[in-house]
Amino acid sequence: MSERRNGEVLLSVDKISLAFGGVRALEGVSFDVLEGEIRAIIGPNGAGKSSMLNVINGFYHPQEGSITFKGKTRKQMRPHFVASSGVARTFQNIALFKGMSTLDNIMTGRNTKMKRGILWQALHYGPARNEEIENRGHVEKVIDFLEIQSIRKTPVGRLPYGMQKRVELGRALAAEPELLLLDEPMAGMNVEEKEDMCRFVLDVNEEFGTTIALIEHDMGVVMDISDRVVVLDYGKKIADGTPDEVRANQDVVDAYLGVAHD
């Protein structure tokens, strides 16, 4: 990776604790994401990585702690607010809308940008049609960027896994996010698909200046593309720093190699 970028703090989570009944998923986790960087969240299975993204998304509401996004501090987030203020995400298990075409799936990513009421839409005339065409233009840019022109009208249920992952990234990109949360974007892919996906993640970061927070299990990928890495284990943060710092951290090595917890 090139030199570290030091933007403003875009998102910071402060002492987040989340419990489901007796299960403590996150305990006092704090870290920040700087504008324009690629931030990786890693950790063994069950470490609380996806829970962390769900907290940022407003899908889970933490019992303690606060989240600061773009300078505003909140106890918890609401999904609609988060989406409309510029956070988009992809999911660990593909969460596309199976009955819809690629184009329609990516169009849903622009849902928060479209405002016309149902009567205009019923007429499909004037402002509603202009809005539709304008947003279609944005979606086509995303389609070109991800090189999925040929599957534009294909129902996503019929696409192979790697393509579905790409469409899902497209749906997130269509929202023109400032912060993109990627939950295991390379899971289950072969080497070639992984390389493609890495290229897209880096290109998104460089071309659009989008800040990216990603969860990934492939250590090679994480160490290669991320600027800073935060490591979670059993709901606690055990390390935070550049890939090199993290790689040298004894706690991280222990967590991955399975030394007994005391």
Partner: peptide, 18 residues
Amino acid sequence: RAWMAIRDMDIAAELIGI
């Protein structure tokens, strides 16, 4: 599209702002 999104995957739909 919002209706179909809710039909196919309601949680994902909610998290993208529907």
